[in-house]
């Protein structure tokens, strides 16, 4: 079976928020770009989502929740980890 090797592009803001984008999974639908309240993301020339303004990110992780392709993940140190 073909093994994919997800290789995320990670960017970290001064606030500690970390956005990782897996370019291999992104299909460029633009849902994360359109519904980001702070305009952090944009579609690049490769038609994949890119993080253009990470300092504006408020860490609400709406992009992460709406992404149909599991291509974007947000880590917010201020948000408490969900108890298991």
């Amino acid at each position: 079976m073909k093994k994919s090797n997800p290789n995320p592009v990670v960017q970290t803001a001064k606030t500690g928020i970390e956005i990782s984008i897996i370019k291999e999974f992104c299909k460029g639908c633009g849902i994360c770009v359109e519904f980001c309240p702070k305009d952090v993301l944009a579609l690049g020339s490769d038609l994949k989502t890119n993080c253009i303004n990470i300092e504006a990110c408020n860490g609400d992780a709406l992009c992460e929740l709406r992404c149909p392709d599991f291509a974007i993940f947000v880590k917010n140190p201020k948000k408490k980890a969900i108890k298991k």
Binding site: M1, K2, K3, S4, P6, E24, F25, K27, G28, C29, G30, I31, L65, R66, C67, P68, D69, F70, A71
Partner: peptide, 18 residues
Amino acid sequence: DRFPHILCPGCGIGSAMN
């Protein structure tokens, strides 16, 4: 070994699965 999935770009099934 399974990703990226076969669903079309922008398909809502991915969001529901998420």
